[in-house]
Write a protein that binds this DNA or RNA. Structure first.
Lengths: 196, 196
DNA sequence: AGCGAACTAGACCGGTCGGTCAAGAAGGTT
DNA sequence: AACCTTCTTGACCGACCGGTCTAGTTCGCT
């Protein structure tokens, strides 16, 4: 699906994406029908299928552009920083802040990972983030700044901590984004801090 | 829903739960219809509604009993162990091994967290696990074995690492459960191991 | 003003959904 | 054998699903 869109058309399309994102995030993808979306916007069903080939296509589009946006933010946050450990930290903070600011999308990501139709698309996107992180982790290992362990596993672990703490503390809104970022960074840098 | 069940009835019920769990895990909760379940078992639809009041009730029952089972396994793994740090480690290992061995259920948990209908039930169950862990973490802090940080956040972080690494390495079957457990324990105990 | 492209409304379609129900088979107890 | 409870069948129901389509309106351009 790809049409020539006038400014008016682009805005409609954006409207549909925004509203659908919210509904998907609050009610779930399956329970939200196309009729719900167009009714909520007060437009006819034809509008939806003018801009999107299917409900599924819309959802995948939301996932793709969101993942791209998050990665961009992370890259902007670390550009020009020499210290690899510092780059990891800034990457974590940028990621946490993006996910906290786009909680709707975070929820969509969580769901998308659970259904085979979307899992592939999600895994691909996440793998990109992990590869990004692996570069810095490897550098940190080479420089002897952190012990030599599988950098990919470390990157996934970081992602896991970030997602979990945001999920708990944003949805339970008992912490703001910077506080969560502090907690995540702290745990990722030294874990429980057990002396062994 | 609760009926007097003969042994035969109990087995039917278990059959339904087993098969539905697998279908829910592979195809998703919504895409799996009640008709799919009974057809897959070669029985009539009435059978399903003889044992369960609704599709939703069945799903919640699966979640409840699974969470209980996982917690039991964790408790059995740490009973009689004096060292709180060791208890945390054994709890992590037991949790990881349970989730790896019951990957179907792990996927269901992942989905259940994303839909408002089931999120409450899931959160409650997870909170219990966290409270369990918090007890040992507090003790470890008091004994000076680990630095004094919010034990609840630590517990959630541990849960996040466990879920993420199992998700990645079991579904991509490139590691077995004990290896994953090692990796999780390692990360949780000392994180990236940054010297600060 | 006129025309084609962009956009919109909403009735409509076939299919599927979760759930019901009447009828009867199977099994245990007396 | 008679009888009651447990269990099973599958046709059926109304609701709703994603998606189509036709008839039209609005807009930008010449």
């Amino acid at each position: 699906m790809s049409r020539r869109l006038t400014p008016r058309g682009k805005e409609r399309r954006a409207q549909l994406i925004d509203y659908a994102t919210k509904r998907f995030a609050t009610d779930g993808y399956h329970p939200t029908s196309v009729a719900d979306i167009v009714d909520g916007l007060g437009v006819g069903k034809g509008v939806f299928y003018w801009y999107f080939a299917s409900k599924e296509e819309l959802f995948i589009e939301i996932l793709r552009t969101s993942q791209r946006d998050m990665r961009r933010r992370q890259q902007r946050a670390i550009e020009g920083v020499d210290d690899p450990v510092r780059r990891v930290e800034l990457g974590i903070r940028a990621g946490v802040e993006w996910l906290a600011a786009n909680n709707d999308l975070r929820r969509l990501f969580e769901f998308a990972r659970t259904e085979s139709t979307f899992a592939g698309s999600m895994k691909a996107g996440q793998s990109v983030l992990v590869s990004d992180a692996v570069v810095h982790l490897k550098e940190a290992i080479v420089e002897g700044r952190i012990p030599d362990r599988d950098p990919e596993a470390l990157a996934w672990a970081i992602l896991g901590v970030s997602n979990q703490l945001i999920h708990v503390y944003i949805d339970g809104d008992s912490m703001d984004a910077p506080q969560i970022a502090d907690t995540v960074v702290d745990f990722c840098m030294e874990g429980l801090g057990v002396r062994r």
